[in-house]
Nucleic acid binder design. Sequence first.
DNA 1: CGTTATAGCTACTTGTGTAA
DNA 2: TTACACAAGTAGCTATAACG
Length: 266
Amino acid sequence: MIRESFIVLPHVGRRTEAKLWAQGLHSWDHFMGAVKVKGLSSARKDAFDWRLQEAKDNLRKGNSSFFSKMPDQWRLYNEFKDEAVYLDIETNGYYSGITVIGLSDGFDTKTFVRGFNLDRSLLIKELSKYKLIITFNGSSFDLPVINRFFDFSPNVPHIDLRFVCQKLGFTGGLKAIEKQFSIKRRPEVNGLSGEDAVYLWEMWKSSGEREYLDRLVWYNEEDILNLKPLADKLIPAMWQKVRYLKNDIALPTASCTAKGSCPVRT
DNA sequence: CGTTATAGCTACTTGTGTAA
DNA sequence: TTACACAAGTAGCTATAACG
C-alpha cells in the first residue's frame, strides 16, 4: 500500500497521484524505473526518484518516523500493524486530569492507573516499543491531553480512525460505529459512555470500592481492543476507495438483515 | 466545557509546457 | 532565455464533529 503511494512526495496530492497511477506507474519501483514521466520536468523527476529511494531505505530499516508527517497516515497500516499500539485515555472531566491510559498491541493490554502506575517515564518507555499509534479521535483528544500533562508527544505515525470512518461514511462516534460492524462489548460495561467513566473514577475515589475501578479499566480495554477489528475492516476499504474508486465495505450481513437497520453504504 | 482534523470556500503561489 | 496561460498545491478562513 505505502509502496504504491506517491503522496509521500512534496507537492503531490491525491490528484497528481491518480494521474501517475493512470500512466501505469503503480509503485515506487515503476516510477523510478521510468525514464520520463509525463507532466514532470527531468529535474523534478530526479528529485522525486531521490526522495523515493530515501523512503525505500527508511522502510527497509523499519523507520516509521520518516513517514509521520505525510498525509493519509492510514496507508502505513499494513506495513506497521504488527508493531502498532492502540491507545485510549480516560480523564476526570474534559481537561481536568488523566485517570487511566490503556495501551494494547491488539491482543494484550497494559493499563496505567493514576495512583498506581501512571507515570511519565513508564508511559514513554512503553510507547517507545511501538512504531505506529492507532486511536479514535486521538488527534483531537488523547494525544493533546497526554502532551499537556506529560509534555510528551510521540514522533511515530498516528492513524486516527475517526477520520477514516468519516471518509467511508461512518459517523456518530465509536460506540455507534461498533454497532454497525457488529462488534460487541462485554456485558459489564455495555452501554457505558465516556461520561460514565468520569463517574466511575469519582466513585472509586470516594468509596474505595474496587468494583468501580475494575469497571473503568474494563471500559477502557473495550475501547482499545475494538479498534483493531475496526482497523482491519476500514483500511482495506479505504485503499479500495482511493486506489480503485470503489466505495464499498463488507459488513456483517446476519445482524444487518435481522434488524432491518442496515448501515449506510455511500 | 477545549482541542484538532476535515470539508468547503477563496486567494495566492508554484511548476509545466508552448512559443517567441 | 523570457513571457504567458493553465493546472494544481498551499494558506487562510469558517463550520462541524468527536473525545471524557
